[in-house]
Amino acid sequence: MSNLSDFLHHHFDKPADELGDIERRVLAKAHARKVISTDVNAVLSAESSFGERVADGIARVGGSWSFILAFLAFLVVWTIINTIILMSEAFDPYPFVFLNLILSMLAAIQAPIIMMSQNRQAERDRFEAAKDYEVNLKAELEVLSLHQKIDMRVLTELTALREDFARLTAELSARS
């Protein structure tokens, strides 16, 4: 644990008890040299209920061009059948009261389902942002570690050069 506390001391300017959960998790992963999983789809798919998956599917279909075009075709067919084909015996004559009822019921059902899906998308975006933060924090820690290693290497080389310079200076002084 002291090795982890040394790692903490070199990378953060605050004690371990002031770190947040995310910082602790990232610090532990960076210290252990483990990869942070960023597969948002797998995590959220595993946690979603059947109803949430259905809501996502309905929102995906209801918000597609194929649904819009199919529903537009349905409206055109409905209008043609009830105005031209079945002129005198139309089951929903103009002003299409039954069609308006169907559209209202569809909107009443579809709107909350789409809202549920949008809420899940917002939750997914927050989760993804948190994962991005973790990855960025770990990358920053890795960069700091590399800087520290390079600095230590440069200091070691400078010390060796000073020793060599002092030795050579001493040899030159001894020869003269």
Rank of each mutant, 00 (worst) to 15 (best):
L19T: 00
K34V: 09
V77P: 03
E163F: 14
S48W: 05
H10R: 12
M87K: 14
V76Q: 02
R167G: 13
G57L: 14
S5L: 15
L4W: 02
S45Y: 13
D17C: 00
M87R: 06
F127S: 07
A108W: 01
L161A: 13
D151W: 08
K131W: 02
R60T: 12
L8G: 07
E89F: 14
A55H: 05
L19M: 01
D6I: 02
L158K: 04
F74H: 02
L72Y: 02
V97M: 15
M1E: 03
S104C: 13
H9P: 12
S49N: 10
I85A: 13
S66G: 11
F50K: 02
A122C: 07
T83V: 11
N41I: 06
S48N: 07
I58E: 04
L44G: 01
A46T: 00
R33L: 14
R120K: 13
S64E: 02
D13F: 08
N136H: 08
I150C: 13
S88H: 11
D39E: 02
L44M: 12
F67N: 00
W65I: 06
L19W: 01
I109C: 07
D6H: 04
R53E: 13
M116N: 02
H11G: 00
N119V: 10
D92R: 03
L44N: 05
D39Q: 02
F165I: 14
P112W: 03
L75C: 10
I68E: 12
P93I: 04
D56E: 11
I36S: 01
I85W: 12
H31R: 03
D6S: 05
R167W: 15
F7G: 00
T156P: 08
R175Q: 11
N82K: 04
A174W: 05
L4E: 01
V54N: 04
K34Q: 14
L155I: 08
Q148H: 10
S37T: 00
L161C: 08
K149Y: 09
M87N: 12
S145L: 07
V143R: 05
F127C: 08
R120V: 04
R124H: 03
